[in-house]
Computed example of a mutant assay.
Amino acid sequence: MEATVSATQAAATAGPTAFHVMAKPVGALCNLDCEYCYFLSKEQLYPGRRAHMSKDVHEAWIRQLLQGHGDGEVVVAFQGGEPTLMGLDFFRRTIELEREFARPGQQVLNTLQTNGTLLDDTWGEFLAEHDFLVGISIDGPRELHDAYRVDKGGKPTFERVMRGLDVLRRHRVEWNALTTVHAANAEHGRAVYTFLRDDCGATFTQFIPIVERTAPELLLPVQALVDEHEEFNRSLSAAAAAAGLLPYIGVALEALLRNMLEESEDLHGRTCLAADGQIVIARSNAATELAIIQRAEAVRRMLA
């Protein structure tokens, strides 16, 4: 009995095997002004306030994240806005805090999603030394990327992103590509694939469709959407395999569709840590998310 109680107590205090919190240390601040970005407008939520994460919040986040995990891998994830606007000292302090609070048996993996425009050799050396996994946002060849990914002055960013990517490759930083599918590149899927594989040297990429909100009455019936999504996945996989293209992650909609069938209002959410320490559940609604599947036919055509 005593052994049973001890084992139960140990399980109760060990914490979950894993969970994910994505930190946005600069909130919505970004040095770019991508036309499709939904998050830039969030700057207006903090008028007159500096959105950078404070030292106290920074320490509390790392400490609580590690305390809340059991043994095994702990992912420390940074997104934005543009997280490199925090500067390297913030990330150096992150490493110090991880070393201070990580327990034996925990392995910390740092991930960073960036537009790549601020990366230089100092960043490259740091990211390589501490084994960061970096996601870099690039939407394809120059003319496709620059269609929407522009800076605050409306100037193209392709050259700057490619210079940042060169930094990652030169310092052998592990990286993958995050590519949005939008009106400019949706009909050029194979060109985007081969650019990422051959010109960039990507070995893994993610694709996220950019969609507009639409009225519910314009949506297809639920079962038709389920069938279309399954066919989209089959055709995308077949196209990738036939062309010898790189691995990818498409849009995971199974949970969404299950919630649709249950007539759920709030379909899914992602846990984010805002710069001021607030926990935000980034939720999507049916009108937005179902439009993703409506674009399946266009994406399927681009891979034909």
Score class of each variant (00 low, 15 high):
151 D>H: 03
139 D>P: 00
144 L>V: 00
146 D>P: 09
157 T>W: 01
164 G>A: 13
145 H>F: 07
154 G>W: 01
141 P>Q: 02
140 G>P: 00
151 D>S: 03
160 R>W: 00
160 R>K: 01
151 D>L: 06
144 L>C: 04
148 Y>W: 12
154 G>I: 09
156 P>N: 06
148 Y>F: 07
144 L>F: 05
160 R>P: 09
159 E>M: 15
155 K>Q: 15
144 L>Y: 04
166 D>Y: 07
140 G>D: 15
148 Y>M: 02
162 M>W: 12
144 L>E: 02
151 D>F: 03
161 V>S: 11
143 E>I: 00
144 L>H: 01
158 F>L: 11
147 A>M: 15
165 L>M: 14
143 E>W: 15
137 S>C: 03
161 V>G: 08
145 H>Q: 12
144 L>T: 08
157 T>R: 11
153 G>S: 05
145 H>G: 00
158 F>D: 07
140 G>A: 07
154 G>P: 03
150 V>F: 04
150 V>A: 05
147 A>S: 07
164 G>C: 08
165 L>Q: 14
154 G>E: 04
163 R>M: 00
144 L>P: 06
161 V>T: 15
143 E>L: 04
147 A>C: 02
156 P>S: 02
141 P>V: 11
164 G>F: 14
138 I>D: 06
140 G>S: 10
137 S>E: 06
145 H>D: 02
164 G>V: 08
162 M>R: 15
159 E>C: 01
146 D>W: 05
146 D>L: 06
156 P>K: 01
143 E>C: 10
152 K>G: 13
138 I>L: 10
140 G>K: 07
162 M>G: 11
163 R>A: 06
159 E>L: 09
148 Y>H: 15
155 K>C: 07
138 I>T: 08
164 G>L: 09
150 V>Q: 05
146 D>G: 13
141 P>A: 00
149 R>I: 06
164 G>K: 10
138 I>A: 14
164 G>W: 09
